[in-house]
Amino acid sequence: MIDLLSPAFLITFIVGCLVGTVPLMLAALGETIGEQSGVLNLGIEGMMLVGGYAGYVATLSSGSSWLGMLVGALAGAALSLVIVVLNVWLGLNQIVLGIAVTLAGGGITSVLYDQLYSKTAPRADTGGALKIPGLSDIPVIGPSLFSQPGFFWVTVALVVGVGFFLRRTNWGLSIRAAGQKPASLDAAGGSVMRTRSQAALLGGAFAGLGGAYLAVFATGAFTPFMTNGLGYVAIIVTMLARGRVLWVALVSLLYGVTVALGTVLQLTSLDIPTDVIGMLPYLAVMIVLVVFARSVYISPALGAPYTRGAR
């Protein structure tokens, strides 16, 4: 049994937390933007997989993980065009389209990976950690928190930025109006279609970023269906966070803690089957959902296509 409070142990735990948190936080952030505008994106799982695959391929071929993340975001946004055109513009069923995007994203990435990489399974070079001068010398949090990949800090900036834009700008107000009462946004001279399209594209880009982070930084390689339901967890995080970005971050962190607990439990001499450890985060999510079922909130116009003049 290893010492539970040794620096090595704590470093493993914190790193594990962040690895579990960041992909989920990015995806949940995207889902929050979408849901606030009234678009329920059930295809987030497929967008994460496509983003992850694209990010992995781009990182492999260019050698730059920054370019990989960019390509991942673009791939997620490209797939969300399906939602934008068919759901936002034409008003087709969001749930059916969400299932379709998930199936298509998972299927096509699995087929492509199988064709191109399954024999060699190359690992993406992430370019190492960004050690922040000075801070990375602090014991325990230095080698864990302040030695993250550079994109980790971009994620932190994105969380703060999205929080600011949703709450403090006209654009954020339009997004929330599109989800609360689209007719009033229309009456105020805004465009529900344009607002929702922007939100859905942004949501897809964030989901793609989440998938790319998972593939490039968290594991260093893409494997088919590697998200394993993380997209649905992101939707639950969104439901529990009630549109507040701070809560998105906190609930994602809670998930990350359960993931890290699982990793850490494997290091102890306790003999816990890996299946139990893999289930832990989902069980935690389900328990949280049962306990806080009352406070789950979704935008009133969520899932309702907007037709001007319809009552």
């Binding site: 199936l103 298509a104 998972g106 299927g107 087929v111 199988d114 064709q115 088919p224």
Partner: peptide, 8 residues
């Protein structure tokens, strides 16, 4: 071809 093509 991967069987997952069917889900596409």
């Amino acid at each position: 071809l991967s069987v997952d093509f069917l889900s596409v």
